[in-house]
Design a protein around this nucleic acid. Structure first.
Lengths: 263, 263
DNA sequence: CCGACACGGTGCGCGTGATGCAACACGTCT
DNA sequence: AGACGTGTTGCATCACGCGCACCGTGTCGG
């Protein structure tokens, strides 16, 4: 039945539980019946599942809407996930520095499934913004981080990721795979990517790859800001800064830049 | 068999999966065999479980140690959990303000299981500190947040939480339940808690309760800093500020301070 | 006031799917 | 080589999670 090889554990109920968490995450909050429908199981099953999740505080019940949302148990885990993560620890000081220099928002993203997940963020403006992108998912083809992750992925991985259609989010979103592939080659030459109002109108960004010990792609580091502050003429300079910062992070992770590796 | 009533869902495998995530969180990283032992299941079961978790990127394999650690899928969820959380949203501006006034670190913690989990943090010093406490767990009896959570918990809850022995972390940690209970009464009168080098030497803190619509305890808000800056004579002033801030958060959550409720 | 409809939660048999066992493959010491 | 450590995979058994039905609750609208 499974067309995709896609090996892995086969614990149905566990898989369902994880699926449920993701669904709740997507929708903000869900009721038992609604969850049951989305999981394609009987509501009784959904009820018991959610009760189990609630038991460990992975989800909690909103007292007013009576629906379930993600709970603190999850936050506790994720804190450990982020905190115990070499990448975030290594990158933080450099992110701070880059944000300081550019006065724009700096994001660190990794590839997860078929999208970018931001694992850390530092804002350039001193006023701490309430809303963080950390944990957010964005598409690959229209974000600077995503393009970097695509550009430096293995060929097989890139082919897999580009098999799906590229949704249009703004008039300037690149939806043609061929055009995107051309741009990815350019990115590999230049060393950084850029997006200009492809994800969101008025939002530009540049990004560069973070590599691990073996030269493998680990994450992407981006600087993003409003189009009027990050004009086309500014991007090369910002791109250079970002690439330098990304290289600094890579070095911290044990990456050694072997000689002058052209292209 | 279950002595504790302890109702809730009864999906063993799901429960095991959540347990596994918590264990991995606690230990940083775990191998299959080790996890199997801790879960009291056959290592084959643990292997399949972990494979399922890995499939959704809830855990990932550390390429060097070959062990499993928490993955990005979890970060993605937790980001949503924090972001979609009324408490954090409501509290953030007030946390910022409190940090600004006190120039110290402000933490927001909730009760999770038998410990405090920090769900948000704002640092007083403008330089962003690398290490965040968000997601960390600390014991109840030796942290200011923990004492508040204990003090304002229901009697039954408090009794349950104080049944376990109180580990000593510093020479000044309170390990005597009776003494702690006395202090909890004082906290209820005073409106804020304080710890002086009970969790960590050189670290003092004060905390106050955040209440919800029905006057129920929701979280604890704390200010912490080095003992030389937060001396015993400073604590009443800081405690008052913290209590005011906590009340402001409570009001945002719909709490109404019914008249002068002495004690 | 009482039906109708939604929701969430819970006993209960049935059948599937998760479990433990064993065997395997791989790496690392002595 | 051998012994031990790891993680992964077929396989047969049986416990456990599943759907069904039922119940309690809240909220419509007549």
């Amino acid at each position: 039945m499974r067309d995709q090889k896609e090996v892995g554990g086969n614990l149905q109920s566990v898989r369902r539980a994880l699926r449920a968490l993701e669904l709740i995450s997507e929708h903000g909050e869900l009721g038992v019946t609604e969850l049951g429908r989305k999981l394609e199981v009987h509501k009784a099953t959904a009820s018991r599942l959610i009760a189990t999740l609630a038991e460990r505080n992975f989800v909690e019940r909103d007292p007013i809407s009576e629906k379930y949302r993600l709970g603190f148990g999850l936050i506790s885990l994720a804190g450990a996930a982020v905190g115990g993560n070499d990448l975030v620890r290594a990158a933080r000081p450099i992110l701070d520095d880059l944000a300081e220099r550019t006065r724009e928002t700096v994001n660190l993203g990794v590839l997860s499934g078929e999208s970018v997940v931001y694992v850390d963020q530092v804002t350039g403006t001193r006023s701490i913004v309430s809303v963080s992108w950390v944990g957010q998912r964005t598409p690959l083809h229209c974000t600077s981080n995503g393009k970097v992750l695509l550009a430096y992925a293995t060929d097989a991985e890139r082919d897999r990721l580009l098999r799906v259609p590229l949704p249009r989010l703004t008039p300037r979103t690149i939806t043609d795979v061929k055009k995107l592939r051309t741009q990815l080659s350019e990115i590999r030459v230049r060393g950084f990517s850029q997006t200009m109002e492809e994800l969101e109108e008025g939002l530009n960004a540049v990004a560069a790859p973070v590599k691990g010990m073996g030269g493998d792609l680990v994450a992407a580091l981006s600087v993003s800001g409003p189009a009027f502050r990050m004009r086309a003429v500014d991007l090369p300079r910002l791109g250079k800064l970002t690439a330098d910062a990304a290289l600094a992070v890579s070095r911290r992770l044990g990456y050694v830049d072997r000689g002058a590796r052209a292209v």
